[in-house]
């Protein structure tokens, strides 16, 4: 692809992302903020699956970031953007501690173990009113402080402002994850996933890299949680329950996890289906139904996810002519 074409593509995408909230209704703008944050969640989830492990505790890690950031801002008075970073760091550290027991397991046992660990954390939030606020959680979390950029006055109660802010953070996160995947570390992740014994024989500590993937992915999930907490101003244990986890799992699987863009496609398509289509025809409660059927349908008929569909289409359009690692 010629350089200028790439530049035009990047500029067009940037313009589209900037213009997007202005063509939407107010409630759709809110959904857009959530979707942006969810993209970070689902992409960080994929980072973990690069080493071959599937967790059911990822959304709880998001919650750890949300709770930590909320508490730091509210009880300690930490400047909100800094609290968010510390929230992400807390999630990463909690993941590091959890990796000690969890990575004695693999496959299904890791899945169940991560669920148990996540539920324990969630129940601790529920049980201990101080400092976690019990079942009702934490309310009136400090919002992002407003500031004036000259060309745009950021008032973060407004979804458009928060969308720009979240977009910036999420893109930065995605960029780092993308770089990691394309770096030699990403190569080692792939090696650990597909031939763990051959990787060991090459001197790679499989456990160390599984831990690295878990810590990184949890850190980004925590960042996403912090973004969410300071936007809606409240966190509670139910926001991070297994139902949310299943939604993340659905985005990832329906989109496909072999490529970087697969989970993003899954998240965007399902959010649009859910929020635009279902809400318009008044079938919002049908969400689990649609998600469930899509999940079954994907596993049965499109095992590589929507990305595969895009991939086939792109062969005609040469849209993504370069095949990413781990693609079919």
């Amino acid at each position: 692809m010629p350089r200028w074409l790439v530049a035009v593509g990047v500029l067009a995408t940037a313009a589209l992302l900037l213009a997007l909230p202005h063509v939407l209704s107010f409630s759709q703008r809110e959904v857009l903020v959530f979707m942006t944050i969810n993209i970070l969640v689902v992409c960080s989830y994929r980072l973990l699956t690069l080493t071959g492990e599937w967790s059911l505790g990822h959304v709880v890690m998001m919650g750890v970031g949300a709770y930590a950031s909320a508490l730091l801002a509210k009880k300690v008075g930490v400047f909100v953007p800094l609290a968010m970073l510390l929230g992400a760091f807390t999630a990463a550290m909690v993941a590091l501690v959890l990796s000690v027991p969890l990575f004695r397991m693999k496959g299904f046992y890791f899945l169940i173990g991560s669920f148990a660990a996540g539920e324990i954390i969630r129940l601790l939030w529920k049980r201990f009113r101080d400092p976690f606020g019990g079942p009702k959680g934490i309310k009136r979390i400090d919002p992002m402080p407003d500031f004036d950029l000259g060309i745009w006055n950021f008032t973060f109660f407004d979804p458009v402002s928060y969308y720009y802010f979240a977009l910036l953070v999420v893109l930065a996160g995605l960029f780092v994850m993308w770089r990691v995947e394309k770096s030699p570390i990403g190569l080692v992740f792939h090696a650990v996933h597909w031939q763990d014994n051959l990787a060991r024989s090459a001197g790679i500590s499989v456990r160390a890299y599984r831990t690295l993937a878990l810590v990184l992915s949890s850190g980004f999930a925590g960042l996403a949680g912090a973004l969410l907490a300071h936007y809606i101003g409240t966190v509670n244990p139910n926001m991070f329950d297994i139902e949310q986890m299943v939604y993340v799992l659905t985005w990832a699987i329906v989109g496909g996890t072999a490529t970087f863009y697969g989970p993003i496609i899954g998240c965007v398509v399902l959010t649009v289906v859910n929020e635009i289509v279902l809400r318009e025809i008044g079938l919002e409660q049908g969400r689990p139904m649609i998600y469930g059927m899509l999940l079954i349908g994907t596993v049965l008929f499109l095992p590589k996810g929507l990305e595969d569909l895009f991939h086939r289409l792109s062969r005609i359009g040469l849209l993504f002519s370069r095949q990413p690692r781990g693609g079919q």
């Binding site: 899945l111 409660q285 049908g286 689990p288 139904m289 999940l295 079954i296 095992p303």
Partner: peptide
């Protein structure tokens, strides 16, 4: 795949009963 399909099925069952 079986595990994921069963998760899909549980969502469908829950939704059907809720409806």
């Amino acid at each position: 795949g079986g595990l994921v399909a069963s998760i899909g099925f549980l969502m469908v069952l829950q939704a059907l009963v809720a409806m």
